[in-house]
């Protein structure tokens, strides 16, 4: 006699991924790693500001012509932008939904509180919000120039110097980059755990990589306003 077989159908892979807390963390991990890769490239590109207006502006122009003649003018740039927007939206939506679930899961706080997890871990949510707001300002400031008085289209070097010649430009940027460092410190290591790449033997290396990435990114990005503030870049 044949035994009864389980016949219920499982939902599709995408449905399983999005409906599960573990799946949503996977979405966060992958989108986070995509953004992290972009940030490393972005940071290295930014440092070209130390080689003068000519090289920096030339580099900015090259970003629009990458892949020619196969790609049309700005196609590659727009492709990158689309991938980034999808990553940001996926990351933020998952984070919002997971946070809602987390807060619902612990409705009553302990009377006797003790925060033991690291500062980077505790500030992931608000740090993420700060970074989101920063990205909006950053795009309005240096991509569209909407909030940038005296913005010159096609002269990124001059625009960067303009932004970092104001105290609020420096302040917003540096605060956001410190938040970025903390976010990457916990985020990179967490992404590795979520994707199942962590292990007892690899833990130390992963934590070290997360710290180095966080430090390099923060230092590399902050080097630009510091260069303008100290007059090395003008």
């Amino acid at each position: 006699m044949a035994l009864a077989t389980r016949t219920d159908r499982r939902p599709s892979r995408a449905r399983t991924l999005w409906d599960s807390s573990v799946g949503k963390k996977t979405v966060m991990a992958v989108s986070g790693l995509i953004m992290l890769l972009y940030l490393v490239v972005h940071m290295i590109g930014n440092l070209k500001i130390y080689f003068g207006a000519g090289e920096f502006n030339h580099y900015a122009h090259w970003l629009r012509t990458v892949g020619e003649p196969f790609m049309h003018y700005e196609w590659t740039l727009w492709l990158v932008r689309i991938v980034l927007v999808v990553a940001v939206v996926a990351h933020a939506t998952s984070a919002y939904q997971l946070s809602r679930r987390d807060l619902r899961a612990r409705p009553v706080k302990y009377a006797h509180r003790r925060g033991r997890s690291s500062y980077a871990t505790r500030t992931m949510r608000w740090g993420g919000v700060i970074l989101g707001l920063f990205i909006v300002w950053h795009l309005l400031d240096l991509t569209t120039g909407t909030v940038h008085p005296g913005f010159q289209e096609g002269h990124p070097y001059q625009n960067v110097v303009g932004t970092f010649s104001t105290w609020y430009g420096d302040l917003i940027y540096i605060v956001a980059m410190l938040a970025l460092g903390l976010h990457v410190r916990h985020g990179f290591w967490s992404a590795a755990q979520t994707l199942g790449a962590g292990s007892r033997t690899r833990d130390r290396a992963l934590k070290a990589t997360a710290n180095i990435l966080a430090l390099l990114l923060t230092a590399g990005f902050i080097a630009v306003p510091v260069g303008v503030m100290t007059g090395v870049v003008s």
Binding site: S21, V22, T26, R101, T194, S199, R200
Partner: peptide, 30 residues
Amino acid sequence: GGCTLAGECATACPKGIPLVSITGMNKEWL
């Protein structure tokens, strides 16, 4: 709730189940 890898669970566990256990489950789930 979901995991934010704060690590409090493994610190509190009286039987010493390690935090990397969660990594293992994530791997199994994927």
